[in-house]
């Protein structure tokens, strides 16, 4: 993160006290219950999370017909998987776009921070940062290079600005050397950044290119570590 947005303890403590005071007053006045905010946060820890998107992508990788249905009618194809809450808040109208040998997709919201909550959870800081929102539409290839992704000139870049009801997400390309991984193992490789188009899904490292159960477990542990991004500590 840019140090521009890293604040001193005093500023954070002032905001923390103010939000606590606001929540306390709203509870006292009957606008909120003391369990209301926690109910929201629990939803994003248990229901609306990037695990859903990762599982959808993995299914699309192993089942070409599913992928075709997902691109044709995204909500309907997602409904097949019977995850809860998939047409909920900020997922009322979702659409998937697929990366390929000829196209790379990047999702952005230049006006605010629209994001596919049910399949991706809440947006990470970089997505909301004015620097990304400004530059992503003007020089997407330069921004992607800074994120470590070089798109050859011959490959088309499509940038999707989420300015009305559609919430976009990307089906990244399946990495090489992943043929032996099952759906669950594939899902563990998929990050929110890959599903927004600012990262590719890397091949499993050479030591993991064999169906070795102990090593696969390590991939899954790394995925768990990524999931902890919801925590601030």
């Amino acid at each position: 993160m840019s140090s521009l947005f890293k604040y001193d303890k005093d500023r954070e403590a002032a905001s923390a006290a103010k939000v606590r005071a606001l929540e306390a007053l709203l509870i006292k006045k009957g606008v909120l219950g003391s369990d209301s905010v926690d109910a929201v946060l629990r939803h994003f820890e248990t229901v609306a999370s990037p695990f859903n998107g990762a599982r959808i992508v993995a299914r699309a990788w192993v089942d070409a017909e599913y992928k075709a249905r997902l691109l044709e009618d995204t909500p309907k194809a997602i409904a097949e998987l019977q995850f809860p809450g998939m047409t909920g808040a900020e997922g009322e109208h979702m659409k998937a776009v697929a990366n390929s040998a000829t196209v790379h997709n990047l999702i952005i919201c230049t006006l605010c921070s629209c994001y596919s909550w049910p399949v991706l959870g809440l947006p990470p800081y970089w997505y909301k940062d004015p620097v990304f929102r400004s530059r992503g539409v003007r020089e997407p290839r330069a921004v992607l290079r800074e994120f470590g992704v070089t798109i050859p000139e011959g490959k088309e870049v499509k940038v999707w600005d989420s300015s009305a009801q559609i919430r976009w997400f990307v089906i990244p390309e399946r990495p090489a050397h992943s043929e032996h991984l099952n759906e669950e193992q594939l899902a563990a490789l998929v990050t929110p950044e890959a599903m927004m188009g600012v990262a590719l899904v890397p091949s499993p490292p050479p030591c993991l290119r064999h169906p070795n159960v102990y090593l696969i477990r390590r991939i899954c542990r790394d995925a768990d570590a990524r999931a902890t991004r919801f925590a601030t500590a």
Partner: peptide, 13 residues
């Protein structure tokens, strides 16, 4: 966009 900050919330509050 020099630092790839992946956290959703920058502070607990």
């Amino acid at each position: 966009v020099n630092f790839f900050e992946k956290k959703v919330f920058m502070a607990e509050w």
